[in-house]
Each structure stands twice: as structure tokens, then as C-alpha cells.
Simulated scan of single mutants.
Amino acid sequence: MTSTHATALRALRIGFLHDLEETTLDPARIVEALDESVGCNNFDVVGLEDDIDLFVDDEGALNGSRLNLRATIIAHQLGTPTVLFGNAVALGCNPNTGDSISLTTTQLHRLRTALVTRPAPAIIDQLAVGLTAFPGLVAMLRRH
């Protein structure tokens, strides 16, 4: 999770209340920058397709953080069916070293497209299983 680049890392913040926000993180203080951006003391990494990592609150479901439906849908759309709480930050991942790197324009487009594209029926079924505690959301997903 280190970075070999001296320039700021291009990232995408996925808040549960706000739109997707492109941001930059200082690679010299990446852990602190992620703590601040995610808004927690302990974060976890969720690996997605296309060498994208989502940094999320490790204890979000336990500490009262709100469901992040945007990040949850993106994770499902990009191959990792999981339910996420609190804010999330997406960064690129060097597949050879595991280091955090800037998101490419293609990766940013992939993240945005994953959110605005209607999930396939199989993904909606996966979302329904993970979101059983939120029956209103499940009904909304199945309707649209």
C-alpha cells in the first residue's frame, strides 16, 4: 500500500451523502490521508476489477457508520459482492507490487459507469442478499 510516485495520487472519494468527488492524496503521508478521507482510524482494502482498490472503514458496520449504497453498488458491479459502510476512497493498484497508485482516466470512467449502469439481474440478486436489513432499498433496486 505504499507508493513509488512523488506526485499526488489521483483518487475518487465515494461518500454516502455526496456525489463522487475526485481528489488527490499525498503519497508521502498516504496512511494519514486515507484515514482523513475515509474518516476512520482503521481502514480495510477491498480489491475490485481493473486493478482498483477501495479503502473503506474497517469497522463501519460496527461503529454506526451509514450504509454507503454507492460504494456497495460499485463493489458489486466490479466483482466484489460486499456491503460497505461509511466513506470509501478508490485508488489504483499496481498489480505487480500491490502499491497504491493514481487512478487512470479509464479506471475513473469504470467507477462512474459502474454506479450509473443498471446492475444485471444476477448482481441485483446479490445486492438483495447483502441488503436484507434494508428491505426498502431492495424493493427500490428490484423496481428500477
Rank of each mutant, 00 (worst) to 15 (best):
A11R: 13
T132V: 10
F55P: 03
L137M: 15
L20Q: 08
M1Q: 01
I74F: 06
G60E: 03
D58Q: 13
S37A: 15
I101Q: 12
D26I: 01
N63L: 00
F16P: 12
A133K: 13
L48P: 07
T117A: 05
N94L: 04
A8E: 10
M140I: 10
I74V: 14
L137V: 14
I30R: 14
L54F: 13
T23Y: 10
A33G: 14
F16D: 06
F85Q: 03
V46A: 07
I101C: 08
A114M: 06
H109A: 14
D125A: 15
V56F: 05
P27C: 05
V38M: 14
A120K: 10
G130E: 05
N68A: 03
P135Y: 04
T113A: 04
S65I: 05
I14A: 04
N96P: 00
L9V: 02
V46C: 12
T7K: 11
Q126A: 13
Q107Y: 00
A75D: 12
H109T: 14
A114G: 11
E21V: 12
R142C: 03
S100M: 12
D26K: 05
L131M: 12
L25P: 13
V56S: 09
L34P: 04
T132R: 14
L91E: 00
G79P: 02
A88F: 04
R143V: 00
P121R: 02
G47W: 04
S102L: 09
N42F: 14
E36G: 02
N96G: 09
C93M: 12
P27G: 02
R10C: 02
P95C: 06
A114S: 15
R143E: 07
S65V: 07
R10S: 09
A11W: 08
D44G: 05
L111Y: 09
T104V: 09
H109R: 12
P121C: 01
Q77Y: 01
C40Y: 01
R66C: 04
V31T: 15
S102I: 03
E36T: 14
Q77R: 11
H18G: 02
D57K: 11
A122N: 05
R143D: 01
V46D: 02
A71W: 11
P121N: 01
L111W: 07
L20N: 13
L127D: 08
N94A: 15
T24I: 12
A71C: 13
N68T: 05
L9M: 03
L84T: 08
